[in-house]
């Protein structure tokens, strides 16, 4: 049988690998779509689906994204958009964690929800959606609530964790687990017209700093709920941070939080978690 790489090279169009050829190779050689995609990227071949990434993400960087694994904790308002964007970006592995099923009040904003999947687990919808839009991406659906007890297992081998939770208590548990495991965490939270986003790298205590005044319960989202657009905005900012963490480029939202007000259209940068200046021992 012909070598699979030669098979791919013969089918390039304008230097790009068409999806039809990737699919044909997978079927003919008995490889997964993911394995074909990795082989292509390793050999400097851009799958055609990523051609509009090309002038901002090199083929080597596209391979870095493919080899990364991102945990999305929560598959509701933020999580639905985060998963969609990670899959389209070409992140190779997504661990989707959520204990819940879709309910009718999710339909105003949660990308993965539809009348047809009410009552079905959110993580199952995540798997179905990603298989539909980018079959080269591997989704691990975990229908469970994240906590410090199961955290180390859920985050094993993960490059970045994305906070798409709707509970401050669980967020603090995620932040604690990420600190313990040395995993970067992108934190986002929303309520009504408002939201914020930040990035916590191992050793930082940014999320704890943001919620330093929290005692119990929910924030403004309890009364305001959430509309269609706020999760999309904050989720997109979170994914941009994930992309930059994986690729090691740009300036991260480290030690600062962007606070976004979509009603008055204001963005404020708040210093967060900047350590106190150390007194020199000398």
């Amino acid at each position: 049988m012909e070598n699979i790489l030669d098979f791919l090279l013969e089918r390039l169009k304008d230097g790009l690998l068409p999806w039809a050829a990737q699919k044909e190779a997978a079927e003919l050689f008995g490889w997964s779509y993911a394995a074909v995609e990795e082989l292509a990227l390793e050999n400097g071949i851009f799958p055609a689906r990523y051609q509009r990434n090309r002038n901002m993400i090199s083929v080597a960087e596209q391979l870095q994204l493919f080899r990364s694994s991102v945990a999305v904790i929560g598959c509701g308002g933020l999580g639905g958009y985060v998963i969609e964007e990670l899959a389209r970006l070409g992140v190779g592995r997504i661990v989707a964690v959520d204990p819940d099923i879709f309910e009718e009040h999710n339909l105003n904003r949660q990308l993965l929800s539809s009348p047809g999947n009410l009552g079905k687990p959110k993580v199952e919808a995540a798997l179905t959606r990603v298989n539909e839009i980018n079959p080269a991406v591997t989704v691990t659906p975990i229908r469970d609530a994240f906590c410090t007890a199961n955290g180390p297992e859920l985050l094993e081998g993960v490059t970045v964790a994305v906070d798409a939770l709707d509970s401050i208590a669980y967020r603090l548990e995620l932040a604690e687990t990420c600190t313990e495991l040395g995993i970067p965490m992108v934190h986002g939270a929303i309520g009504g017209w408002y939201g914020h986003v930040t990035t916590q790298l191992p050793g930082d205590s940014t999320v704890q700093s943001i919620y330093r005044n929290w005692v119990e319960g929910k924030g403004i989202e309890k009364h305001l709920g959430n509309p269609a657009f706020t999760p999309a905005v904050i989720a997109s900012l979170e994914v941009a941070e994930v992309c930059k963490i994986v690729l090691g480029k740009g300036d991260l939202l480290r030690n600062r939080k962007l606070s976004i007000d979509l009603l008055d259209m204001e963005i404020h940068e708040i210093p967060c978690g900047v350590p106190l200046e150390l007194v020199s021992a000398a």
Partner: peptide, 8 residues
């Protein structure tokens, strides 16, 4: 002063 925001 900023209010507490914690939804997702």
């Amino acid at each position: 002063l900023f209010p507490l925001v914690g939804g997702g």
